[in-house]
Simulated scan of single mutants.
Amino acid sequence: MHILCDQLEHTQANLTRLEKELEELITTDPGTKGLQQMPELGPKTIAVLRAELGEVDRFACTDQAVAYAGMDIKIRESGKWKGKAKLSKRGSGLLRQMLYFAAIRSIALQGSAFGAYYQHLVERGLKKMSALMAVMRKMVAVTTHLMQTGEDYDPGKV
Rank of each mutant, 00 (worst) to 15 (best):
P43M: 10
L49I: 15
V66N: 04
M129I: 13
R124H: 10
I107D: 04
R50G: 02
R76S: 14
S78V: 05
A134E: 09
A131W: 00
Q7P: 01
G93F: 01
M1W: 11
D6F: 13
V66E: 11
G70I: 14
R90H: 09
M38W: 00
G91Y: 14
K84Y: 04
Q110N: 10
T144D: 03
K157S: 06
A69S: 11
K86H: 06
T149W: 12
M98F: 09
E52D: 11
S130F: 07
H2R: 09
R124I: 02
L25R: 13
K80V: 09
T143M: 10
A102G: 02
G93W: 03
G150R: 12
F114I: 02
W81K: 13
K82G: 01
A47S: 14
L126I: 13
D29S: 07
I3S: 09
G31N: 14
L87A: 08
Y153R: 03
E123P: 00
Q148F: 02
I73W: 04
T62R: 05
L94C: 01
K82S: 02
M129A: 12
T27C: 11
K44S: 08
L121K: 15
K127M: 06
V48C: 11
L35V: 01
H145D: 03
W81H: 07
Y118E: 04
R105S: 15
K20W: 00
K138Q: 09
Q97I: 00
R90G: 01
Q119C: 07
H145L: 07
C61M: 00
S130E: 03
K33L: 06
T144R: 07
